[in-house]
């Protein structure tokens, strides 16, 4: 049997909103470690990896490892029915082909349950080694989202360049060009407003803005985003999820033409 209970049910809603447009179907793996998922988009250039550690839940029981194949659009439909303050319980019995979502209002005066059919999904799992990155940028997630949105009105791709000067986001399109430079800024009153740049090597990579805008849908999950760049690796865009885990997006860089 598998069962988890999360008092902050809105967190699961935000996770689904962050990934449902990128991935259609995914296997959610439940183990003693926690609730995790790895899936690629249909073109195999972007990957999302989610981890919610077991200790972050108010209740977590996993008698044996199970993998639940879920259509994310359908799961998002169900989670939309949960109130933002609702307590969410997810339950699956061994050997059944469905998962149950239960939503309890904080005052316990409304209790709903939804059963979602599971699917057989033949998903490919990639081994992602820990890597040393040439540059790691931490910045306010809302700022990153704003930059991606603004640049996508000018061009289709973004060049992210990290130098001693800061991190530069550039694009070009039919109407012209745009460059946005963010400098390191650690002197802010609130740590969530800081921009911190760790650079070992200068790096400059080009990515499709369409994907960056999709990743930015995770913005409500975290006040800061971490962008890890190396010249020979996919970029990692990471949003930490409270004390529980993370959602990481990997995106292959544009090939030099």
């Amino acid at each position: 049997m598998f069962e988890l209970r999360l008092e902050q049910g809105s967190l699961l809603k935000k996770v689904m909103e962050a990934i449902k447009d990128l991935v259609n179907d995914a296997n959610f793996d439940c183990s003693a470690t926690g609730f995790s998922m790895q899936a690629m988009d249909s073109s195999h250039v972007a990957l999302v990896a989610l981890l919610l550690r077991s200790e972050g839940f108010e209740h977590y029981r996993c008698d044996r490892n199970i993998s639940m194949g879920i259509n994310l659009a359908n799961m998002a439909k169900i989670l939309k029915c949960a109130g933002n303050d609702d307590i969410v319980t997810v339950k699956a019995d061994d050997g059944t082909d469905s998962v149950t979502f239960m939503f309890e209002s904080p005052t316990q005066d409304k209790i709903s349950d939804f059963e979602l059919k599971l699917m057989d999904i033949d998903s490919e799992h990639l081994g992602i080694p820990e890597a040393e990155y040439d540059a790691i940028v931490r910045m306010p997630s809302a700022e990153f989202a704003r930059i991606c949105k603004d640049l996508s009105s000018i061009g289709d791709t973004v060049v992210i360049s990290v130098t001693k000067e800061g991190v530069k986001f550039s694009t070009r399109g039919d109407i012209g060009t745009a460059n946005i430079v963010c400098r390191q800024n650690t002197s802010v009153d609130k740590p969530e407003e800081a921009t911190i740049i760790e650079m070992k090597e200068m790096v400059s990579l080009t990515f499709a803005l369409r994907y960056m805008n999709s990743f930015a849908k995770a913005t409500p999950l975290a006040s800061q985003v971490t962008i890890s760049l190396s010249s020979d690796l996919p970029v990692v865009v990471e949003y930490k999820i409270a004390e529980m885990g993370y959602i990481r997006f990997y995106l292959a860089p544009k090939i030099e033409e």
Partner: peptide
Amino acid sequence: DIFQDALETYFDSK
């Protein structure tokens, strides 16, 4: 996308 490598180019399948 025509201009991007697949992720399998960088990461091995498990």
